[in-house]
């Protein structure tokens, strides 16, 4: 997968891949990692990260300087992402994580605004067309994983702004 991420200077800074012991420095490090992970996932439309597969991701491994983010450090960063609503662990071992480059609440706003602006209220739309069609290619939620997308719609449903129609072979939604 080709990434268009603009790597921050830290990505070439060897100690960026070692969790920093000094508190203030660590805060800076984690802040930079959070921003980089969300940026990378947003650009590459990655909705989940598995701690066992991070060696293969250029995000966590900079081959040029021979550094890989340790998984214990990544876990700390993911927990911070969870605190800000940008990640959720998918299993008890906290190995698989869902990543939200916008929080579910932010996504719900973005999607609702899109539906309003495209005059699609009160119409039944499929989740496929909302996430995969060319019409939404420039939207932030383009290629959003359908599980995540449904979670976002649940947020809107709670506010009575949409209704999910989940059938076995098709998933649709109506906004109002």
């Amino acid at each position: 997968m080709s990434s268009e991420v603009e790597w921050p200077w830290q990505y070439n800074f060897p100690p960026f891949f070692t969790l920093q012991p000094h508190k203030e420095t660590r805060v800076k490090q984690i802040t930079a990692w959070k921003a980089l992970i969300l940026d990378y996932c947003g650009v590459n439309k990655i909705c989940s990260i598995d701690l066992r597969e991070t060696n293969e991701m250029s995000l966590f491994t900079n081959a040029a300087i021979n550094r890989t983010l340790e998984s214990s450090a990544l876990l700390v960063i993911l927990e911070e992402l969870q605190n800000s609503g940008n990640a959720i662990p998918m299993d008890k071992q906290r190995q698989r994580w869902e990543i939200y480059w916008h929080t579910l609440e932010e996504f719900s706003q973005i999607i609702y605004n899109y539906v309003m602006n495209s005059n699609s209220l009160d119409m039944v739309l499929t989740i496929f067309e909302l996430t995969e069609s060319d019409d939404v290619a420039n939207e932030e939620f383009y290629k959003l994983n359908s599980d995540v997308f449904i979670k976002v719609l649940r947020v809107l449903e709670k506010d009575n702004k949409c209704e999910l129609i989940l059938l076995e072979d098709s998933q649709g939604v109506k906004f109002f």
Binding site: F13, P14, P15, F16, F17, T18, Q20, P21, H22, E24, T25, Q29, N66, R67, T68
Partner: peptide, 16 residues
């Protein structure tokens, strides 16, 4: 907070 530590160099701890 002036230096960052790098523990991934096989031969030594480096302070950047």
């Amino acid at each position: 907070g002036l230096a960052w530590i790098d523990l991934q160099e096989p031969t030594e701890k480096r302070y950047y």
